[in-house]
Amino acid sequence: MSTLLKTDLRRYFTHPLTLAALLFAAFLGTIDGVRIRQEYAFMIFMHTQPDIFLFLLLLCAQAAVLAVVISSQYQDGIFRLKAIAGHSKGTVFFSTLLSGLIVSLLLPAAYFLLFCLTAHRALNAIPLRNTIAGGTMILLIFQTAAALTILFCTQIQKRMGALVLCTAGMFVLFAANHLCNYELYPSDKMVITLELTDDPDPPAETVNTYRHAVRYLYLPASSGVHWNQAGILVGSDGEPVDTDGSPLQEQYQPVQRVNQNIKYIGGPWRTFLTVVDTLNPLRPLNTAAVQYRTIDPEKSAGNINVAYRTQEREMLYSLLPKYLPVQLSAFALYCFAGWLLFRRKELR
């Protein structure tokens, strides 16, 4: 088993697609980090639509790598070589699974490494508990997606067929999942901006572009929360409310809809535009750091409404216990099904 695993890992790391996918993951991490620094410099939570879209790209990259490397083993006769070298189908499958999982998890790892390196100053206020919870969920998603991809790859003998099916399948699955969850957030399209009013002397170049932080509201429409004529977030009784729907505390200014730009509406597409916008060379890249130094998100909450941070963190903590058994069960099911099917497969 160890020689098989060694061979499989060696194969991944000599395959140009693996290296390209790792570079792609690092690139996504970098641009996401830059985006966080610029747009969310004072908002220290990562669970946003842009992240999900980038993860979708990463999952597709993961599916592509696994599909090409694994199905090539049929086409090149490598599974045959392994069997002739005295390895049982079971060990061949589990080595394929294990090596695939290792490589799959390296992609988000590369993403986060570069993300953290790029955006560390904007992220250093995140509690460890939050990082662990978020990281665990992401790893669970990636490992389950990898197991599902490997299940299919070990059945498809044509490289191109596996590549198309797995990559497109992953895209559709994840997009469908996103759309299902989208219904949970009927107020998702309400784009608000929070004025950074305690910025005493913002650098001139940041005034227009970076004074606002765009966030989504996680409030069901049934809660009665809505924007009034003046663009203030109010409850069903017309009184200003916080982003979590609770009565607004005195020290906070009302949540105000300053700008609702149609191009920013609609999950992945909005994210794509944000990412593209991040890459705009005309945009000054160093202004976010200035902004961050001016505003400490934890200490100088003052006039900044930071309630959403707690709300989102709590939501994540509550999701994890539900997510963990579901994801682990799905993972175990995919592995078991993959093993059963592979045992019946003739090694070509």
Partner: peptide, 28 residues
């Protein structure tokens, strides 16, 4: 046993030497 069954098995995108290195690794 060493065998060539149906058609020769090797990694198409690797050189002859790299292919043999992979096989050496596989055989431990």
């Amino acid at each position: 046993i060493g065998a060539v069954v149906e058609k020769p098995a090797f990694y198409g995108d690797l050189s002859a030497r790299r292919n043999l290195e992979m096989q050496y690794t596989l055989l431990g």
